[in-house]
């Protein structure tokens, strides 16, 4: 009598279960597609869950400052994967909370753009590809995470979540974030990309001794020193590194509570 034992199979199965719960319990539903490695894995898992289909729109909140490679990637795979792509623009930076440090203020544009998109399409919930191992505040998240009317996350009073019984009942007006990759780690993502042969932007691979470990806006994301030019190199590098994944994200390092402030107000 067998049980599933391969860690990637277990991760995949758990994510499929979560995606099917979300699709069955929340409407209208959308999936955030940032074009990064995690959200490509997420779209892939949706196709696994729904047998080749992605039965809800994928949302790209466009800051207008992504790398050109990312826009090309979006156009190609939205078509190839048959995605119902929605894009939304972000307000200018001078409309953002002036008390935030500069890079965080820039990142806050994405939150504002997302809020507008959610309101205009009336999404009851969106699926986002965050992981617990990325950042300490994200570690506290729930798989099904309710937000108040203004997308605020009340991290002091989160619902209990155990035995894969997620909170799927909500008062009218509640907005839900669903996190099907919460239990994955960075190296899990890469191993799964390798196994499934999932396309990604090649900015993740080293050129001239530098590569991007995490992709955000051009002006607030920096490459890190690396010689990892292939997927096997990247996996080997991650198995030994002690550098944090978001090292290249400027806003994380401006003040110790900035990430918490961003997330409380609705940042992914």
């Amino acid at each position: 009598m067998g049980t599933l034992t391969d860690p990637l199979d277990l991760l995949e199965s758990e994510s499929i279960y979560i995606l099917r719960e979300a699709y069955g319990r929340i409407a209208p539903l959308g999936m955030l597609w940032s074009l990064g490695k995690d959200s490509n894995v997420m779209v892939w898992l949706a196709r696994k869950a729904f047998l080749g289909h992605v039965p809800f729109p994928v949302i790209h909140v466009d800051t207008g400052k992504k790398f050109p490679e990312m826009y090309a990637f979006r156009e190609r795979y939205a078509k190839e994967w048959g995605l119902d792509l929605l894009t939304g623009e972000c307000p200018p930076v001078d409309e953002m909370d002036p008390s935030l440090p500069p890079a965080a203020r820039s990142a806050a544009r994405k939150t504002a753009g997302l809020k507008t998109l959610i309101e205009s399409y009336g999404f009851a919930g969106v699926i986002a590809g965050i992981r617990r191992d990325e950042e300490a505040v994200r570690a506290k998240e729930r798989v099904f995470s309710p937000r108040g009317g203004d997308s605020r996350w009340n991290l002091r009073d989160q619902p209990p979540e155990f035995w894969d019984q997620f909170k799927t009942d909500f008062a009218p007006g509640t907005h839900i974030r669903v996190h099907p990759l919460l239990h994955w780690t960075e190296v899990d993502i890469w191993r799964y990309i390798r196994r499934e042969n999932i396309p990604i932007v090649d900015l993740y691979y080293a050129k001239n001794g530098m590569r991007y470990r995490s992709l955000g806006d051009q002006d607030i994301t920096h490459p890190v020193p690396s010689d990892a030019a292939t997927i096997d190199d990247v996996i080997a590098e991650l198995e030994t590194t002690r550098t944090a994944e978001r090292t290249g994200r400027a806003m994380d390092h401006e003040a110790e509570d900035v990430f918490e402030r961003l997330r409380s107000s609705g940042y992914m």
Binding site: M1, G2, T3, L4, T5, D9, L10, E12, S13, E14, I16, Y17, R20, A49, L51
Partner: peptide, 8 residues
Amino acid sequence: AVAGQSVA
């Protein structure tokens, strides 16, 4: 298919 697998 075995225990742990999400199937259709």
